[in-house]
Every structure is written in structure tokens, then in C-alpha cells.
Design a protein around this nucleic acid. Structure first.
Lengths: 237, 237
DNA sequence: TCACATCCAATTGTCAGACAATTAAGCTTT
DNA sequence: AAAGCTTAATTGTCTGACAATTGGATGTGA
């Protein structure tokens, strides 16, 4: 038995397919809402609901006024980032994905960047990582700020690979972990250990030593999982 | 200068934030459209446009009838897959990402699964891969069918890692390549070579030899790039 | 002729009200 | 108690209208 999707969903699908198939090009103007409601034989509000669906996916943008209308949007990596992060975060929080599983995926993906990053990282990437390491060592830093700095550090490592596709994919894996990481309360000792590992990674990156990066990332993953388990077992008591 | 987003976008954001922050739980019912239009002081069509935006992101589902309404949707990996693939595909096609860059990202990520997959793959994963290899060797297979089988093969390799987060992230990288791969017209000889490499990978996975998997994936990546370059230089003539 | 102000038409954004379609719950009848 | 009927709540769709915005056309003056 076939379901009967909304008219607005059907319209959105028709236009989306036209965009994906290349039938419509970037910055091309869609017919006006009035014309679309004629073509699809539905009312204007229904057309608008369909267009809002596409707008929510960043596939179109709209502009008011004469020679305004809806235009096919160039989907930029910049636009896609927040969407990717939101989706990944919700996937983790709504599906009872264990901390271990998420952590394993994150560091496996990050290790995939090690070789490329060691070849291509610029002084800029190194400087960012060093700066974040310094920040992470400062006393009085809240756990949230520490996590945010941690994300920035790893992001620099990933961006060092100089591959926007990798950066995009990793954004989801790395940033989506942040809410999970925020469960962890970092002691002075655990922060010290993490900073130590980060320093090792930065050194290895500076020396273009991919093996050392991968090894240290592995240690970091194991240590992170260990911290999380301590929190969980402490909570059970 | 502050931008002035649509009312429907503001409403969507407000509700989305409530969902992300955990203020609303999965399967919880939103207020009816009439109530929402009261709360936000806007008309019902405007509320509906906002809700459609959320529906397009799979954040809510709606149901008609008494005790119907809009409900917070459990975002499943299954739902997120197509979205992820669509977005990744458009990112590649709209941003002049070179074949090399996309290919590099894809195989780097895939190599990240090699170790885990060699530890955890089941006979089922191996069987799928062997079956796809057989299909790829059949004469008379269209280029598109060959590509689809290629995707299925690599997907089995990734799924072998037994980590849903990895499978999700890789779906974007692997499937989004398909339109690019379809540019390539495979000769009998190139197909033979690819099948050969696939067989090596399957053997290595069977023997739980992650190093061999990674090495062969590297060869496959280089060979794929080489094929693409041949197509491009042939087209220039 | 050129710069500038004004008006106009096209288009999206928003609203109000209505009716249709669907569905769960309650009520009635057998 | 089971089956059918009624009803109320809710989303889906339509019609028509007006507001807000904006680019282009038009007209005016120096």
C-alpha cells in the first residue's frame, strides 16, 4: 500500500529532483509562486510550503520584490556544516549510541587525516594547535571551554589535510561528540594528560611524522573512553 | 546590520532549538497549529511553513485526525542516510570539487574502517562482497550497474566495521562519488583490474589482514584517479 | 544629455476565514 | 460485548486579500 505524501512534499520532491539532476542550474530562477501553483494545480500556500521545505535544506533562497523570486542556491560547505553537525548530534543523542561507539568512529576518521595532514599542514595550522594547547593549560577554564578548545584543536588537525570534503565529513564526527564530552568533568590531572598528548600530536605534525600522530590519537581515544567509563561508574554509585 | 529572517524561519528555529536542547523529547507532541499561532502571534499558514521546514529535516512528523498533531521524530540513521547522500552529492557537483579531492577523501575515510572491519566483519559481509565481485565480472553489465555494484561492495566493507556512526559518515563519501564515477567508461581491461583489486581486498578481509586492505585500497584509489584522468584528457582532444 | 526623484508593477511575506479529510474516542444499538 | 455511528479535534488545502520590498520605467530639471 502506497502512502500519500502531502502535496507540498510532492512539489518539493519534484523541484529537488530537478535541481539534483542538473535540470536546473545554480542561481537559476524558479517560476514565481503563482506560476508554480498553476503548473502543479495547487494553491499558493501549498506551493509555499513546498518551497519552505527546500529552503530548510538550503537548496533555494528567496528574494522579494520585482525580479525577485526563488533561486537555486549554491550549496556551500559553509552552509552544509551546521546542518551536518545538527544532524550528527541528534543522531547520537536520539539513538542510544554508546560513548565508545561514537568515540571509536571519531578517532578512526581522524586517523584517516593523519598522513595527509602531516604532508600538507601549514604553519597556520600548527600555530592554531599550539594556541589551543596553551589555552587548555590555563587554570580556571570551565569544562565547556576546555571541550570547545579541544574541538578547535582537532579541527585544525583535520583542516591541515587541505581537503574540504574530509573537513566536512569530520565536522560531523568531531563536533557532534561535544555534548557527550561535556558529560565528562575533567580533573586537573586528566587535563594535564590530554595536553601532554596534544603536544605530542602537534610535535609529530610539525615533524611530519604520520605514524606518531596515529599512535598518539589511538592513546587519546583510549584515554577518553577511560575517562567516560570512570564518570559512568561513579554515577552508578 | 541585522538580517530579518522570515517569521516561519524564526518559528522553525525556536522549535528546533527546543528539540536539540532536549527541552522536548522524542515522540512528544507539539502544540496544535492553532495553539502555536496563538503563542507566536502569527497566522496558521505561517506556523505551517515553519513546521514544514522542520519536517523537511526529519525533525518532526505529523498526523491527522483527533489526537493527531506534530510529534518530535526520532531521527534514525535510516532517515539521515538519504539526506546525507543528497547533501554530499550536491556539495561535490556545485562546488567544483576535483575528482582527485573527492577520491582522496573517500579512500582516506575508507581506510579508516580497515582495521575495525578486519576484526569484526561477519561471514555475511564477506558473502556480500564476493557476490558483488562476481556481478562485476559479468560481461554486458552497464557502466551504471558496475558503479552501483562497486558502491555495494565498498559499503559492505564499511559496514563490516560494525559501527553505525562510521557507516553513516561513509555513506556520504562513498555514494556521493557515484555521479562522478559514472563519468568514467570502464573498459573490459579496467574492470578486470578493479575486480582483481576487489578480490585482494576481500581475501585480506577474510584473513583479517588490515595492512593488506589499506595497501590495496591505496592502489585502488590511485587506479581510479588514473582512469578519471584518462577520461578527462581524452575529452580535451 | 545626464543625474535624480517618482511612480509602477512584479514578487514574496503575512493574514483571515473557510471547507475537506482523517482519525481517535465516545456513544448507541444489537 | 461487539459492531456500527457520531462527534470533536486536528492537519491538509483553497480562496482572497493586503503589506513589504525592490528593480525598472518614467518623468523632470539643470
Amino acid at each position: 500500500m502506497t502512502k500519500k505524501p502531502d502535496l507540498s512534499a510532492q512539489i518539493a520532491k519534484a523541484i529537488r529532483d530537478a535541481i539534483i539532476s542538473g535540470e536546473m542550474n545554480v542561481d537559476e530562477r524558479l517560476p514565481s509562486e503563482a506560476e508554480l501553483s498553476d503548473q502543479f494545480n495547487v494553491s499558493r500556500p501549498t506551493v509555499r510550503e513546498g518551497l519552505k521545505r527546500l529552503a530548510a535544506q538550503n537548496l533555494i533562497r528567496t528574494q522579494r520584490g520585482a525580479s525577485g523570486g526563488a533561486f537555486v542556491n549554491r550549496l556551500s560547505f559553509e552552509d552544509a556544516y551546521p546542518q551536518q553537525i545538527t544532524t550528527s548530534t541528534l543522531l547520537l543523542s536520539m539513538n542510544a549510541v554508546s560513548f565508545d561507539t561514537a568515540c571509536e568512529a571519531r578517532f578512526a576518521l581522524e586517523r584517516a587525516c593523519a598522513t595527509l595532514s602531516s604532508q600538507r599542514r601549514t604553519p597556520d595550522h600548527l600555530a592554531t594547535m599550539r594556541a589551543e594547547i596553551v589555552r587548555q593549560g590555563q587554570p580556571g577554564l570551565t569544562d565547556e571551554a576546555f571541550c570547545a578548545s579541544d574541538v578547535a584543536f582537532h579541527r585544525a588537525l583535520v583542516d591541515g589535510a587541505g581537503n574540504p570534503v574530509l573537513s566536512y565529513q569530520l565536522a560531523g564526527a568531531v563536533e557532534a561528540m561535544q555534548p557527550l564530552m561535556n558529560m565528562i568533568t575533567f580533573t586537573a590531572r586528566s587535563r594535564e594528560r590530554i595536553v601532554e598528548l596534544h603536544t605530542t600530536i602537534a610535535d609529530a605534525l610539525e615533524n611530519r611524522d604520520p605514524v606518531a600522530i596515529e599512535t598518539t590519537l589511538h592513546c587519546l581515544a583510549e584515554y577518553t573512553v577511560e575517562l567516560a567509563h570512570n564518570v559512568i561508574s561513579a554515577r552508578n554509585r
